[in-house]
Computed example of a mutant assay.
Amino acid sequence: MATLGLHETLEVHELLTFKSLCLTKSSTMNNLVQDEELKRILSQDAALSTKHIQSLQNFMTKGGIQ
């Protein structure tokens, strides 16, 4: 497996930070909204963000990124 360059490593970290922010925002907003359809959308987004975070963390672990 090829080693990632510094720029690529920073990009992966930025993606992980962004997806973490998305998860936090969706979870927080879900507790504040009243509309059931919007709650459903926010719950789906939180679940998808969680999957993305796990995928990025797995990639970083397998890629040897710290």
Rank of each mutant, 00 (worst) to 15 (best):
I65L: 15
D35K: 04
T50G: 13
A47L: 10
T3D: 14
F59D: 01
F18M: 12
S55G: 07
E36A: 10
L15F: 11
I53E: 04
L15V: 03
E14M: 03
K19C: 05
H13G: 08
L4F: 15
R40V: 05
F59C: 00
S43K: 15
G5T: 15
D45V: 12
G64N: 10
H7E: 11
S26E: 03
F18I: 10
E37I: 11
T61N: 12
Q34Y: 09
N58S: 12
L21D: 14
H52E: 13
A46S: 14
S55L: 13
A47D: 09
S55H: 07
M29I: 02
L6Q: 14
L42K: 04
H13C: 09
C22R: 07
K39F: 03
H52G: 07
L6E: 15
T9C: 14
E36H: 06
E14A: 13
T17A: 14
M60Y: 02
L48V: 10
E37D: 12
G5F: 04
Q54R: 12
A47H: 07
T3S: 13
L56T: 02
L38N: 08
Q66E: 11
N31H: 06
T24H: 10
N58Q: 11
L6A: 15
I65V: 15
L6F: 12
Q34E: 10
V12Y: 08
A2D: 07
T24I: 07
T50S: 15
S27P: 01
A47W: 04
R40S: 11
L56E: 01
Q54F: 04
Q66M: 12
L56M: 14
L23S: 06
S27Y: 01
T61M: 09
K62D: 03
Q57L: 10
L15D: 09
K25S: 04
I65G: 14
M29Y: 06
E11F: 02
E14K: 06
T50L: 13
C22K: 06
K25P: 02
M60H: 04
T61C: 04
N58G: 03
